[in-house]
């Protein structure tokens, strides 16, 4: 009976772990939702900050996050898909594949603050883009590149080989096959990757600390060379800068709720789509 007893203890322990994990994560979400929902209103979402950040809305931060995210996807998407196509379709020599995979994996593991330093040195200073939407987007683009590549890679690998063969056997060239058969078929998977990347970039703070974000702007950014407010940075700044911490906390809760909502929305949609499109093809492998 000792055997059964140890099983009971063991199973209780791992159940407790699961319970605690869920409890911790949900309590974080719970506190942010409960405190944030009080501040959220139409005005909060659509107006400029007022009275030294103690009142008004966060519209410019939402808009700024939108620009930065959009910018980073515009830069990283073509590059990421090109890389995935090359890896999957042009079957380069195995040492080439290994080198590329190695760099993708390690780029994915670089701490985000290091991307910030890189962006600061190259985009802000060396190329002279200054602290701007452009610098921030480029920095974020490099950060999400591995994510886009691996999602596209998976999506392209899931396209049945028989479709490629069918296309080639009709006299299509390799590029025609990629453009007209492989990419359209892989599109849902690639889309999942894009949505995941949007969720990821929207929440990144450290890379934009020195490359794009500022605490306060008088209006909306005018060009890609403008500085920009962004939701994650705004939360940070509200908690660490400014003169009225008590009033700022409330606004920060609102910002955090909006950011959390956006990120959870994007990642749930992406994961839902991915699970749904797994094995969409009834045939082939």
């Amino acid at each position: 009976m000792k055997k059964e007893f140890s099983q009971k203890i063991g199973f209780s322990f791992i159940s407790l772990c699961m319970f605690l994990t869920v409890l911790f994560l949900f309590s974080i979400i719970f506190f942010i939702v409960v405190n944030g929902i009080r501040v959220i209103s139409w005005e909060f979402l659509t107006q400029m900050p007022k009275e030294a950040m103690t009142a008004g809305g966060i519209a410019p931060a939402i808009v700024g996050t939108f620009y930065l995210t959009l910018g980073s996807i515009i830069f990283s998407l073509p590059l990421g898909i090109a890389c995935a196509i090359y890896l999957c379709e042009y079957s380069p020599k195995s040492y080439v594949v290994n080198i590329i995979r190695f760099s993708i994996n390690n780029l994915a593991g670089v701490p985000s603050v290091v991307f910030g330093l890189f962006g600061l040195t190259i985009f802000v200073k060396y190329l002279g883009f200054g602290v701007s939407i452009l610098s921030g987007s480029l920095t974020l683009a490099i950060l999400v590149l591995p994510l886009i590549i691996s999602a596209s890679n998976e999506a392209i690998l899931a396209v049945p080989q028989s479709l490629r063969e069918a296309s080639l056997s009709l006299g299509a060239t390799k590029w025609q096959t990629i453009k007209k058969v492989v990419l359209p078929t892989a599109l849902p998977g690639i889309l999942t990757g894009i949505i995941l990347s949007i969720g990821r970039t929207a929440g990144e703070t450290a890379p934009i600390l020195f490359t794009a974000a500022v605490f306060y702007l008088k209006g909306y950014p005018k060009s890609i060379f403008s500085e920009v407010m962004a939701l994650p940075y705004h939360i940070y700044a509200l908690m660490t800068e400014g003169l009225y911490p008590d009033k700022q906390v409330k606004i920060a809760f609102g910002c955090a709720l909006i950011l959390l909502f956006l990120v959870l929305l994007f990642s749930s949609v992406a994961i839902y789509l991915r699970n749904k499109h797994k094995n969409i093809y009834g045939y082939g492998n």
Partner: peptide
């Protein structure tokens, strides 16, 4: 999905 929550949210939760 939870793994996607940005670190700033955790930091904010911690401090607030």
């Amino acid at each position: 999905i939870l793994a996607m929550i940005p670190s700033i949210i955790y930091g904010f939760f911690g401090i607030a």
